[in-house]
Design a binder for these strands. Structure first.
Lengths: 344, 344
DNA sequence: CGAGCGAATCGAAACGCTTCGATAATTGCT
DNA sequence: AGCAATTATCGAAGCGTTTCGATTCGCTCG
């Protein structure tokens, strides 16, 4: 494996010249730079990662701690992991994957052995063990998600409250006065990350502000549960004309299936809005209006903030990514129930 | 951050003694070792990763190349990624995650900069670009999956052919003579990994060997497709008394839903066997007999083989993990159609 | 009693890079 | 022409380990 010495010899310069020619940290004559680059090319030289870490001040590696629980929704989880990896690569960073069973000890290990320059924390729970460890280590870190006590931390996340408010607004603007919310399974609210409650509470708050009637159900993943959940919604709000979905992909599909089965047309009889989903909604029948959760957005920002911290401490902050609405045609004005309602 | 110098000073020995005391590569007096360990403890010393890589011969990092395509089934993919990470950690290795869009260039980069000791290759396609790169780099690598040309490579995978044969055997042993196979979506067979065809072909071969009638369908992920697929199976083999499922979790659920809907009881009217699934099958109604694809098995073995290669070249090989059958009660003797068949 | 040996320890040389300070060589000003 | 400032290059000192002799000491054995 060619070393910087070989490059220096072939180019006929000293190794420091090679280093500067490659890093650009000092001015080098154009002709020299070319000779160096040519030698690099010819030898297929790549700087040795270990030597670089040792001599330089950074490793160009981030740890990614991405706990995976039994009720973690794999596609979304995967989307975030990949988005972090890609964002990191675009900044010339690599990603070291830490798993659940090594959550805190792994952080200690990689940080105190200077294996990584910083940490990206995924799937943050309200009360997350990793928070304390990271505070203690004082290592650059960005949280994707928001722990209960975020003091001194750098956090990035979609603005779930604003997303919920935007969802309500869009439906109110279309004329709806009674809106149902179909959320994740109860387990997700009970223990997992804190975005589901944030969305739910934002939804209720926005609805209250608009004087809108609401109902809320948390179906399980399996088929019959969705049917029961919809029944519960209609039982509680017979006048309901729109539903917001904040759940997994399979729930979306199941809801549409059940609606179809009952002869309820979307959007003529019921408007549907998918909120904070990290999957495409335009392959559904019909395609669903959506306020998506774009993994790439949060992750890119998280990586950028982590890199800023590597050069020196930055102001702690909670950065909320503003939600955006995409129209697909699944929202319409509410049907006129006085004339003819398919459900009556 | 405490260095080996600090430890040496506190323990009152030279740094080489510290190194040997920690690595155990030379004999050290027990009393000395204790003093060293005590100093390590007190200072919270962790060897610097960069220095270690540079001086030592290994980095204790594996690259994991895990391409994620549009039709990749996220839960299974995730299961393998996590299993590799965990297996690696149990051998004191870390995992560097390489993504799709950097597949070959990323391999080049991490290998030639000596960032990693070896590579674990996931989701291997029959004709995979990464094969050529890895041959060229001559770096320790283990493939999880089997490329078309596996000459000189170290590969690990579930024995899908044997799994298919075992599935057929179990059903034949129960008395079935006509078995349907519900596979993945057509896209998966067309371009993706090569295990689906391996299973399918193994299924046909075993069926032929037993003189069994077969039919095969490839439903898409969405709901109606499963219904259509089942219709097609029964149309082709009205006498069919058992089906083997080799597909995603949602397909399993959908198949059971459709069967229930049609009044077909499992296993009284139709026996069902889940094959090579990487998810649990005991939460289904009814729980399904299964020949699982255990990510941890293949991944553990893959990591072990990679580590062996780090110490020196090993014999290239294709290691097939033998399938195992777990009974859950979804297989029964075929119904006696002469008396009364729910479908007739 | 001295040669020989093994155990325990040390010193120093890598490992391949970054970076600081020093040295030339060149240019710009007065 | 003389001096300062600028540009281009080099040498060498780390960075924190591992590892290879070399050294010291206490024993054993002939």
């Amino acid at each position: 494996m060619a070393s910087i010495h070989d490059v220096a010899r072939v180019a006929g310069v000293s190794i420091s010249t090679v280093s500067y020619a490659l890093s650009g940290k000092r001015s080098i004559a154009a002709s020299t730079r070319l000779r160096v680059l040519d030698a690099v090319e010819r030898l297929g030289y790549r700087p040795n990662a270990g030597a670089r870490m040792l001599a330089g001040t950074r490793t160009n590696i981030f740890a990614l701690t991405a706990p995976f629980h039994a009720d973690t929704y794999a596609p979304a989880h995967m989307a975030f992991v990949l988005a972090v990896a890609q964002a990191a690569r675009e900044h010339d960073y690599d990603v070291l994957l830490l798993t659940q069973d090594e959550a805190t000890s792994g952080l200690r290990r990689v940080a105190s052995s200077s294996l990584v320059d910083g940490i990206i924390v995924l799937d943050v729970a309200g009360d997350d063990d990793r928070v304390a460890v990271i505070r203690e280590l004082g290592v650059p870190a960005t949280f994707i998600g928001i722990p209960k006590d975020a003091a001194g931390l750098v956090c990035v996340d979609l603005d779930f409250e604003a997303a919920a408010a935007l969802a309500v607004e869009k439906l109110v603007a279309a004329g709806h006065r009674s809106i149902g919310l179909i959320g994740h399974s109860p387990g997700v609210y009970a223990r997992g990350s804190n975005f589901p409650p944030r969305f739910r509470d934002g939804f209720f708050a926005a609805a209250a502000a608009h004087g809108i009637e609401t109902a809320f159900v948390m179906p399980e993943r399996d088929g019959p549960s969705v049917r029961i959940a919809l029944d519960a919604l209609f039982a509680e709000r017979p006048e309901m004309t729109a539903v917001v979905l904040h759940a997994e992909e399979s729930i979306h599909a199941a809801v549409l299936d059940v609606l179809r089965e009952r002869g309820l047309r979307v959007p003529q009889d019921l408007s549907v809005l998918a909120a904070c989903a990290s999957f495409e909604t335009d392959h559904f029948e019909p395609p669903l209006d959506t306020i998506p959760l774009v993994a790439a957005d949060s992750c890119w920002r998280a990586v950028t903030l982590a890199i800023e911290q590597v050069s020196g401490p930055i102001e702690p902050r909670i950065e909320l990514v503003p939600p955006r609405f995409y129209e697909r045609g699944s929202i319409a004005p509410p049907p006129d129930r006085h004339l003819a309602s398919p459900r009556s």
